[in-house]
Design a protein around this nucleic acid. Structure first.
Length: 691
DNA sequence: ATAGGGTTAG
């Protein structure tokens, strides 16, 4: 063992050690590429660039700041190399998600005649266990370690524990490897806690952290961030709060990484004010701070019931993206994927396209997560061609990217493309999951392919052992309802293995209304109101059902109930549209000039207002947003609108007429589906859960 | 002077 793990001879060429040590310690505190470059310049001026320790630290720091080219350049100019310099270069590659190159450096080092130390082998093992690299190499390394009796070393034990948790996520082996470490240090504990987090063993992870505290080991910033990340995935805000006080007690409240992780926890559980307080209290921010804020705002948009607030969050996230860049930081793959999600939620195509261009320039489009986010952005902005182009251009695919594209085709009514792609996915050897099947089933439902849908449903259960969830049942119900096969829809619901929820009942209510089956419709509406009392959309559908049936007495009863219970106040009808770099929002209101003109003209192409519409002179918000879009957005660009509630039948047919009349493609994404209007037709196939 | 962490897509 001694011959394989030699102690490192200190270079005797070091001169002016005091100054060199000063630079080494300055470099270790460095957090950004800019700072590193500044220090580099000073080092050159001071002459300490002759010192191997200083230059090794520089390799490390450049590596940690994501400047792998700079790190390698410094390494190439070193006056001499030893095992520490080689190890530093390896870890630089590892930090920059290039484990394969890290391993190449390891092999080069061996060729060069340097003996690996325990640190070197640890890095090599971590490189091999990275998800991006080969598991077999890790196993070979493990064999090598066993052969030379090296597995009792703490560094190597840590790396082994990491290896087991990542290769196949085998927690049992990881935990065994952890307890086998002879002298566990903070790094060992951090490794096991974060392993628990990555493999969804949350309670175990917290228990490990507590054990560590009981053993009297002092936490550092790394274990704190790991344990906050654990809370984040668990949404365990109360544990998080306790840990936050612990953090303050032990003096880590001004630590940037720790604050970032606490801030992200608050954002994840929706504690916006607390997150912002932490953000504003920061003296300096890092790229991770911005990324966490942007990602937090992006996911907040999904959680937000109030769409006006949701769009405000999105706009704020876009603003942060600008501020990030103005501060001189370079966005990374996390930034790009989050900001693309923001653009999709805002249906901000123009901004999305700009981000796309930036992502190409900075080379992050090769990342599969960014690529998938791009596919989703184009899909949600209604541009199926661009989504498909982005998908085709992706260098690699994952389950999520296949699923995104399949779902995109399905949502746009390209059922055949969706099902073909599903076939390609299976041929490529990727295993579909339950989300993939939601896409597949909705493709069938959209095209009315009953036999196919039922056979895919069986395939999912039998071949892939996936238990159906509400969305799967919803697709089948939706399909029967679209075809007007209401009895079959109700039969299917009766046989469901789970209790139907409001989503299922609202499909049935809408279907019954649209096909004029009042008996079943009232029954479904009753069930729906049990689950969602005083729901404004249900009341509206019920009211419309009575009106269509000419049951005026019942209709006025419902209307009175709606008035008495103030139901309509709960229906917040908002639409918004993004033009250039601004987002405009509209609420339901009285008719203005442009809209009046459109209404007048559309009567000539066959659009007729229902009796209801004439009486209530208030117009739904999407009409204003569409009218505004027609004025502000030049042909042939598509007018894209997002709406907070479900579209009503009348607005749907109105916008169909407008698309014909103005010769414009118009897209409206309501809270249930996507509608792409073109040439007087809509991609939803004219059946939707209309109000 | 080398090991460990936090932020991402359906």
């Amino acid at each position: 063992m001694a011959s394989l793990l030699p102690s490192i001879a200190t270079s005797n060429k070091r001169s002016n050690i005091n100054l060199s040590d000063k630079y080494v310690s300055l470099l270790q505190k460095c957090v950004s590429f800019q700072q590193a470059r500044m220090l580099h310049a000073q080092i050159l001026k001071s002459g300490t660039h002759q010192d191997l320790f200083v230059m090794t630290s520089l390799v490390n720091i450049y590596g940690k700041c994501g400047a792998i080219e700079a790190a390698h350049k410094v390494f190439d100019h070193l006056s001499e190399t030893n095992v520490v310099t080689w190890t530093s270069l390896m870890s630089a590659y590892l930090h920059n998600a290039r484990p394969q190159q890290a391993f190449q450096v390891f092999l080069q080092m061996l060729e060069n005649g340097s003996y690996p130390t325990n640190y070197t082998l640890g890095v090599a093992l971590n490189a091999a266990s990275s998800a991006l690299y080969d598991v077999n190499v890790g196993k070979q390394l493990h064999g090598y370690l066993l052969k030379y009796g090296l597995e009792d070393d703490t560094s190597i034990g840590n790396a082994l524990c990491n290896f087991y948790s990542k290769s196949g996520g085998c927690m049992e082996y990881a935990i065994k490897a952890f307890w086998r470490i002879p002298q566990r240090n903070v790094i060992s504990w951090t490794t096991i806690v974060s392993a628990c987090g990555h493999n969804a063993h949350f309670a175990t992870g917290l228990a490990f952290f507590t054990s560590m505290l009981q053993e009297g080991i002092h936490p550092n910033e790394f274990i704190l961030t790991s344990v906050f990340s654990l809370c984040c995935t668990m949404q365990a805000i109360h544990v998080g709060l306790q840990l936050h006080s612990l953090t303050i007690k032990i003096g880590f409240q001004y630590n940037l990484a720790v604050t970032n992780s606490i801030m992200y926890l608050y954002l994840k559980v929706g504690w916006f004010a607390q997150a912002k307080k932490l953000f504003h209290g920061l003296e300096q921010v890092s790229l991770v701070t911005w990324n966490a804020m942007i990602a937090g705002h992006a996911q907040m948009m999904d959680l937000e019931d109030n769409n006006v607030l949701a769009s405000r969050n999105g706009i704020e996230a876009l603003d942060m993206f600008l501020r990030l860049q103005r501060s001189g930081l370079k966005p990374d793959l996390f930034t790009f994927s989050s900001i693309l999600t923001v653009c999709s939620n805002l249906v901000a195509l123009e901004q999305g396209e700009q981000v796309h261009a930036q992502a190409i320039k900075s080379g992050f489009l090769s990342d599969v997560v960014v690529g998938t986010a791009l596919v989703n952005m184009y899909n949600k902005c209604g541009s199926i061609n661009k989504a498909s182009k982005a998908f085709v251009e992706m260098p690699s695919r994952t389950l999520i990217s296949w699923t995104s594209m399949i779902t995109a085709f399905a949502q746009h009514g390209f059922s055949k493309d969706a099902l073909d792609l599903f076939n390609d996915m299976r041929l490529a050897g990727d295993r579909p999951n339950k989300v993939t099947f939601v896409g597949v089933l909705s493709a069938c439902s959209h095209a009315g392919m009953v036999d196919e849908a039922l056979s895919y449903f069986q395939m999912m259960k039998n071949e892939y052992k996936i238990t159906p969830v509400m969305d799967h049942y919803g697709c089948i119900v939706d399909m029967f309802v679209r075809l007007g096969r209401l009895e079959e829809a109700f039969d299917f619901v009766k046989k469901m293995e789970i209790e139907p929820n409001e989503f299922i009942w609202s499909l049935l209510v809408a279907g019954c209304r649209s096909h004029g089956n009042l008996e079943l419709g009232f029954y479904a509406a009753e069930q729906l109101l049990c689950l969602k009392p005083k729901d404004p959309e249900t009341y509206t559908m019920l009211l419309n059902m009575y009106v269509s049936a000419g049951r005026w007495k019942d209709a006025s009863k419902v209307r009175k109930a709606m008035k008495d219970e103030n139901v309509m106040k709960k229906l917040k009808d908002w639409s918004w549209i993004s033009v250039k770099d601004k987002v405009y929002s509209f609420k339901a209101d009285k008719c203005d000039d442009l809209l009046g003109d459109l209404l007048e003209k559309s009567r000539h192409v066959g659009y007729q207002e229902e009796e209801e519409g004439k009486e209530a002179k208030v117009h739904h918000s999407e009409r204003f947003a569409v009218a505004f879009g027609l004025l502000k957005i030049e042909k042939p660009a598509v007018v894209r609108v997002v709406k907070s509630t479900t579209m009503c039948k009348e607005c749907h047919s109105f916008i169909k007429s407008v698309s014909l009349l103005m010769e414009r493609e118009i897209m409206v994404r309501d809270c249930k589906r996507l509608h792409r209007f073109d040439d007087g037709k809509c991609s939803c196939g004219d059946f939707a859960s209309f109000l």
